[in-house]
Design a protein around this nucleic acid. Structure first.
Lengths: 223, 223
DNA sequence: TAGCTTGTTGGCGGAGCGTCAACAGCAAGA
DNA sequence: TCTTGCTGTTGACGCTCCGCCAACAAGCTA
């Protein structure tokens, strides 16, 4: 009689459903702080039972991790672009690209990279830190710097620190609107130039001490 | 007989009790993320009933706010110190002072200023942002800069952005241990110098546009 | 010692989250 | 078309955490 009596819910492929939930979660996490987005909200937004979130992502924290990962997985710098020109030209091009990329992601980027996240969760920090590191390596590559491997770790740490400047500046630009894009571009370019040109050479001079103790390993490894 | 049968709990002055609870809370918030510190933990740490936290601080969030405020209320820069010498000397002295101050607070500072906090809570952000602003103004004063009021807001925004670099660098130093104190000092000094010396003059040249629209206000303010 | 002020306790009710057994969409076989 | 089975999906149960509040008791005062 009644032709099939439309089903109460639609059955999707796992990947489809996962993707759909991820999108809804990303949107909500971009609008409100982590703690103020309940799994009920996300489930409702996706038109799905709350338990399904756990089925696909485990804990709420894991779902948030996926959102962060996706947000930080930006299209890579076009390293194929001819990276010629002066240091300043390369730096400004790099900054230009980054500002463009961030502008498209908008508030969600700010929310995820800033304090808008979950809090000092070790896993979240690891993810973001890794992403920062990838960005750092990309930046170094993009600038065409050949660094000897010995001090590479410190250079990367420097660039990660620079990432802090980048994020703070972008926050001032996107949210606070206290800086214009030109201001941000100027600040970030000058800072990056001085780091690469002035700080790195000085770093290279130092004997790259391994920091802390762990010198004189004669007494045994266990301390 | 038994001399007074010691009471089950001691009655304190409100200020004392408040202070005691604040200390315990600060310690725990420094050790674990916000979400993983339950009010029960704090109450237990302070040897007090959980309900008392609400009595003195209202919500858990408000207690955290108090902790953040206390943490950011650092002893001011000794502006009385003779601020003579070259720009580089003043900058290096400023950075020196800041690194010293942070070193004493250690992990709690990192936890509070970094992503170790509550998340994108508007109130927390406002507090931290205000503290950043105070730090920015102090820094400008300390550097002995006389800025015309017109572009003052932008300069402060720049210094707040610089604060992002400071925090990230300190994180690399304190937690990651990927940078030595000398590395941090070098990076922060050079960056601050280039901002004050190269970025600010360029900023001052621009006509300080009020940003965004709100130009040609003839069509009406409501848009 | 009796009384009063108020710092403090402990339990109630609600909200959010993880788990899990049962349900149902839907495709393949008879 | 009916049946069967796989598995995507649901909904409720139990736990933990938090804000609230009436009752309790520490300790000063007369």
């Amino acid at each position: 009689m009644s032709p099939a009596l439309s089903p109460r819910w639609k059955r999707l492929e796992p990947d489809e459903r996962r993707e759909q939930i991820l999108e809804c979660a990303a949107r909500l996490f971009g609008e409100r702080p982590y703690a103020e987005v309940s799994t009920t909200d996300i489930a409702k937004e996706a038109g799905v039972a709350r338990g399904l979130l756990n089925h696909y992502f485990g804990q709420k924290r894991d779902l948030y991790l996926k959102v962060v990962k996706r947000m930080l997985l930006m299209p890579g710098l076009e390293t194929s672009v001819t990276m010629t020109g002066t240091l300043r030209e390369r730096v400004e091009k790099s900054v230009e690209w980054y500002l463009d990329t961030v502008a498209t992601h908008g508030k969600t980027y700010v929310a995820v990279t800033g304090m808008g996240g979950i809090g000092a969760d070790p896993e979240v920090e690891r993810i973001i830190s890794e992403a920062d590191d990838v960005a750092a390596v990309r930046t170094l590559e993009f600038l065409g710097l050949k660094i000897e491997v010995g001090s590479d770790a410190r250079h990367r740490a420097m660039i990660r620190s620079y990432g802090g400047l980048v994020k703070a500046t972008i926050r001032e630009w996107i949210r606070g609107e206290t800086l214009s894009r030109e201001d941000a571009h100027l600040l970030l370019s000058e800072a990056l130039i001085v780091i690469v040109r002035d700080v790195f050479p000085q770093l290279a001079q130092q004997p790259a001490p391994a920091r802390g103790e762990a010198r004189t390993p004669k007494t045994g490894p266990k301390r």
